[in-house]
Amino acid sequence: MASRYSLAFAVLGAVLMAACQWFIYVYAPVEAVMGLVQKIFYVHLPLSWWGLISFFVIFVYSLAYLKTRNPAHDRVCTAAAEVGVLLATLALVTGSLWARHSWGVWWTWDPRLTTTLIMWFVYAGYLVLRGMDLPASRKGVVCAVVGVAAFIDVPLVFLSARLWRSVHPAVFAAKGGGLDPAMLTTVLLCVASFGFIWAALLLTRIGQLAQQERLEALLRIDD
């Protein structure tokens, strides 16, 4: 069931992403100041959005797990954390490339970038917690609590990072403001295509985790 959906999403995502390449390189105009490097934006934005959505999924399913103790919810959290950290890592790398070209530094104190980095740290720690040798039910609860605490921290991290920036030189103007309509179409398409890929990855991973748990249950020596 899940595997059929993930296959469908993967195919859709692949087709759409191929189409996006045309939109990115042919349809969307080359940005006047940044030049070709601005194309990173079409990858960077979907990555960071779907990364954040992954973390939101963890939050929702952590709450659900605490309420129901259904192991399936726990598996969703594991999968979402893995995919989320992957996407956040790529978002950071692409963001860093952008920063290097645009402002001549690899890293700058931008509230969005900083929030992504902090989230990356939080959820990388979350994955470490996942990898620990704990009884499954205990691990599920501990991770769910961290999953909830981590997400409610996001707005505060963002606010504090923005407030902090006011003491540093403001290095860039609002990004989304004067976006060319062609660029907007392109970026929305990219977000959609990444969404399908994201869903395919997530579902595949959830399926794998379920299989793994089944295998472990079969292999266990029961007295």
Partner: peptide, 8 residues
Amino acid sequence: VLFPLLVP
């Protein structure tokens, strides 16, 4: 786990 959450 704690340090990144304490950032704000």
